[in-house]
Amino acid sequence: MIRLDGIQRVFQVGDQAVHALRDIDLSIGAGEYLSIMGPSGSGKSTLLNLIGLLDRPSAGIYRLDGGDVTGLSDEEQARVRRDKIGFVFQFFHLIPRLSAAANIELPLLLAGVPAEQRKTRVAQLIRDFGLAGRETHRPDQLSGGQRQRVAIARATVMEPAVILADEPTGNLDRATGQEVMNILEGLAASGVTLLLVTHDPEIGNRASRKLRMVDGRIVADERASS
């Protein structure tokens, strides 16, 4: 599903080159549930962004679904992102002036899905994610947990193969975080590949495969024996 070979990411800060990622070789199968942990600055978010095609590697090859996506143009990458990848962020990133339903609908809108289909798809997700009665609320009228559920609904509305979550519970209290994790794990169980970046070992340890990063390198790669 996802294959990284010799991936490097070097940032130029002033006249100093900062190696955010060094020589990453990683292969992730379809439907895997994988957590990435590590201290701040270890490169875990950079790795996630790279996999999500928001960033380009300085060197190396990234294959998604067998195809090399490293050299794609911005427009082509946007299309891959839209069709295959869903993002969940720590700060939700909902558009404040749009209702919950309209936020969920956005990727469908960008993909040019006809209005009829959009409506049924969004209605379906609102039911699935327990947001019934909240579809016309704007984000500032929703609780943190509800906001993150809207964000997850938005990430899944295109039925992507991969969901990338960057500290999805980082801004939520424990109980709400738990609830959000349940939803994400439910998605993983349904066959979606789930990549989770987190600080919180308790959350990270729930994954079936755990990566540990330090200084831009993967230092541990454990699979839970199940």
Binding site: G52, L54, D74, E75, A78, R79, R81, R82, D83, I85, G86, F87, F89, H93, I95, L106, P107, L110, A111, R154, A155, M158
Partner: peptide, 16 residues
């Protein structure tokens, strides 16, 4: 900026 970044993340092409 945030909104534009978000749109890009959910698959909006530069042309869009």
């Amino acid at each position: 900026r945030q909104e534009i970044g978000l749109l890009k993340a959910i698959g909006a092409a530069p042309a869009q």
